[in-house]
Design a protein around this nucleic acid. Sequence first.
RNA 1: UGGCUUAUGGUGUAAUGGUAACACAGCGGUUUUUGGUGCCGUUAUUCCAGGUUCGAGCCCUGGUAAGCCAACCA
Length: 553
Amino acid sequence: MSETIKERSLNFVEEIVEADLKSGKHNGRLLTRFPPEPNGYLHIGHAKSICLNFGLAQKYGGGTNLRFDDTNPVTEDTEYVDSIKNDLRWLGFSWTNEMYASDYFDQLFKYAKKLITKGLAYVDDSSAEEMATQKGTPNAPGDESPYRSRTVEENLSLFDGMANGDFAEGSRVLRAKIDMSSSNMLMRDPIIYRIKFAEHHRTGNKWCIYPMYDFAHGQSDSIEGITHSICTLEFVSHRELYDWFLEQLEIFPSKQYEFARLNLTYTVMSKRKLLQLVNEGHVNSWDDPRMPTISGMRRRGYTPKSIVDFCDRIGIQKRDNLIDVSLLEFFVREDLNKTSTRVMAVFEPLKVVITNLPDGVVEPCSLENNPEDLESGHRTVNFTKEIYIEQGDFMKEPPAKYFRLSPGKMVRLKGAYIIQCDEAIENEDGSIKELHCSYIPSSKSGADESGIKVKGVIQWVSATEGIESEIRIYDRLFKVEDPSSEEGDFKEYINENSLEVLTAYVEPSLKDAKPGDRYQFMRNGYFVPDTDFSSKKLVFNKTVGLKEGFKVG
RNA sequence: UGGCUUAUGGUGUAAUGGUAACACAGCGGUUUUUGGUGCCGUUAUUCCAGGUUCGAGCCCUGGUAAGCCAACCA
């Protein structure tokens, strides 16, 4: 094979990085950052950003800081810090430094004073409503605040007063003095500090004033020496302000670049909406397997590799996108197909009596653990006189090309024998009660001398040795592709039937399943032990189904 | 009556002035002791109108459409 692997083309951020590296900017140093606010759990959209930021550093020999953007104590909590770090590690990334915007509160306070001293910031006593009016609209310029012309000395003293707790929450703010008629609303004297008598998860009660995002993020980047500060598209108009602060403060000129956030079909991706789903009980928790959170996907059975591969494939761009969830499912199937142990489970049992197998006989059968992995070995499953098969694997009057069981027809029981259906015993209502079949003794799997060729191979579970297990099957959370763009509230489009719980018979080996084990229930799908799993009560989550070929009806 | 950003098959991503390609999805075939996997094949694409050029998805002009911006959120 002499195929030349075509070099993967660069996305626009990589092009910028390569150009900067080539031109010797920052002496070839590269430092990115992943800046979550600790007010919610990470989701698949964050994974895109994580793969970009950490991936860039890995590819070009730089570093990535994990920085918690914790400037709003009202919504933030250490619980979220821990979950974010846990998710990041699980995805397989390690950060250069663990940082907190709150570590810079002292420095930020000094920066604010510097701005005041330069005549570029002032304390404003206007109410929120008054300031909103002053702001104007995107189509009309704003008006200057009556407090805009306070002296440097007065501003300095008032700002100290704010920090000392002399003023009531909401009574005063510090604003940058820029341009009330700018076409960019963010440049119309943005608020940079507000009073909040709230306990911060790290600084406790040290502060009662907290910087706004725009007065914290760029400066934090600058303090850390971040070379490429990558964020999502809604921050494009913040860039002008970002640059303005760093320039006026005369500090390290980090640069901001923006890419389009990820949207996935049949789900929502904003933390606000996900929080609503949790708080209003539409799902059970942040790590509910239906959630697009990293923790939910982990519990659902997604692998880190499948998520990283997905992020790699969707690329980085500036246009809005809505990615088909089937692409995500492709990557998890691709990974799980190679790595998961094959086992047998029956969800809708139909009893089969093997009439020519004597009572009490137990016939050990050897089954491959994974045909895709020759190292995975074999296990023994016992064949007994009474077994269960899937109801759908028998039809009294089968359609054309139906390869499973029907009166007089044969199928192979996976890893065991070929059986023939001799008689279907019916209940009074005409439904099938059980099947009487005979097995072909010379057809044992691996030693088949019968010469019989059958097209159908089905899974089965011994009725005497199989064990019961709870199975949780998940469907898409929403009934429409893009709930956020539909009329009305997104919650009107919730799929009420996204969770189905049933009881199945599974082969005995699953009693020893452990968290993190991954299984393919043959001819069905991929399943993982849930966090509720115990050897006394087996609980499996369905990650994703196998691709379906032939469909009856 | 503004500013900014974007526009390539059904979905997503390439093509960096020179044959519009790759993945997913779909469809068909083949292999198979999973109707899975693998392998092979196949359908379908440059928002519109002008312009520059030997040549335009790419450059220019003008439209159109979509997204973002008026939180003491990030």
